Simulated scan of single mutants.
Amino acid sequence: MTNTDSVQPIAALAQQALAPKDVEPGRIYLVATADGEIETVDLTGPEFTGRLERKTGTTTVRDAASFLTYYAKHHDDSTEVYSDVEKLTVTAVLDAHQADGARFGGHRLHLALRKTKAWEEWTSLDGKLLTQDQFANFLEDHLAYLVDPDAATMLEIAQSIKASTKAEFQSSSRLQSGERKFSFVEDTKASAGAKGDIAIPETFKIAVPPFEGADAYSMTARFKYRIDRGQLALGFKLEQPEERAKAAFADVLAAIAEGVDTPILNGTPA
């Protein structure tokens, strides 16, 4: 056999080795480069297979119903649930450690309750004194949350407060009915200025939902006032709004407890 005859099969094998071949996602290949090196081609990643090795990430929801929907889809027998009453949060570690082995703990569900605009508006004025106009306007804008006295009665009170903004208030007294009466003179420059009075209940009740998706909770508000140089300032003091928010959270937690199959731990996951 001539040298030429022996070279031809070697060349054919070389050409065959260089011919392109189909590859499959999910496998690892060793590839010979033109300069004689060997490279590793890893096609096992999710960008090639279209599948993640494990679930990751934290999903945040805003109400108990959404929490239970996501939980039902993704939990397993080792899922853990934690509650934090101070932060008003509930967190589920969906891939928590198992009794006989560790897991990543990287797939989580987080309930972060969001306070309603109405709750924030009422609590932002808690304990503050406003001008007559400011106070009357606030009552008119929040009639939907007034329970006792009813909205119609409180509207009349607001209108009476507005009508006397230019008067000079001289005294206040407590009536047998439990209301407080404010006496005023409309025209102090005249020798016999027109006199009048406004009767305001010492307490009233409101019903406001603390969180989005939650029921309204009742609170008692006590009127506050100050007469300074004939000017009347008004406000209210809410009865333990923080405790009412915690009570609302307890009800949310109870709703979640009914829908999960594991005890809810008091604390924060690692």
Rank of each mutant, 00 (worst) to 15 (best):
L43M: 07
F104I: 13
D35K: 11
T40C: 09
A136H: 00
H110F: 11
V81D: 00
Q98L: 11
V90G: 00
Q132K: 15
A118C: 06
A102L: 06
G36C: 04
V93E: 01
L52V: 06
S83N: 08
L68I: 10
Y71N: 02
S78L: 13
H74A: 09
T91L: 00
H110G: 02
S78E: 06
A102H: 15
E47D: 07
L113T: 03
L125E: 07
Y145M: 14
A136D: 04
F135Y: 05
P149V: 08
K115S: 12
T33R: 13
T131K: 04
Y70P: 03
T59V: 05
T123C: 04
T91S: 11
L111Y: 03
R51F: 11
A144P: 06
D133G: 06
V90I: 01
F138D: 10
A102W: 10
D141G: 12
L146Q: 02
H75D: 04
D35Q: 03
P149A: 10
A151S: 12
R108I: 01
D150T: 06
F67W: 03
A118G: 02
D133N: 14
D133I: 07
A34I: 08
A65F: 05
E120W: 09
A92W: 00
R108S: 08
T131N: 10
G105V: 05
T44S: 05
D77V: 14
I38K: 15
D150I: 12
F48M: 09
D63P: 03
L88A: 06
L146N: 04
L111D: 00
T58F: 03
A102C: 10
L125W: 10
R51Q: 13
T123V: 07
R103N: 13
V61N: 00
T44Q: 06
A151E: 07
L94T: 01
L130A: 03
D126P: 00
H142T: 08
L94I: 10
T79H: 04
L129I: 05
D150V: 12
V61R: 01
F48K: 02
Y82V: 01
T91D: 04
A96P: 03
A32S: 13
V93K: 00
Q134D: 04
H142E: 01
R62W: 08
A136G: 08
A118S: 08
W122Y: 02
A34E: 14
A72T: 09
K117T: 15
D100Q: 12
L68G: 00
F67D: 02
R62T: 12
T49W: 01
P46L: 15
A65E: 04
S124F: 14
K55Y: 11
T33F: 01
F104T: 15
A144R: 11
L146H: 01
L130I: 02
G105D: 05
G127S: 12
R108M: 05
S78R: 01
A32M: 12
G106W: 12
T131S: 11
D95P: 01
D76I: 11
D148I: 07
A64G: 10
H110M: 10
R54E: 11
D63M: 14
L129S: 05
P149Y: 05
D150Y: 14
A64R: 05
H74S: 06
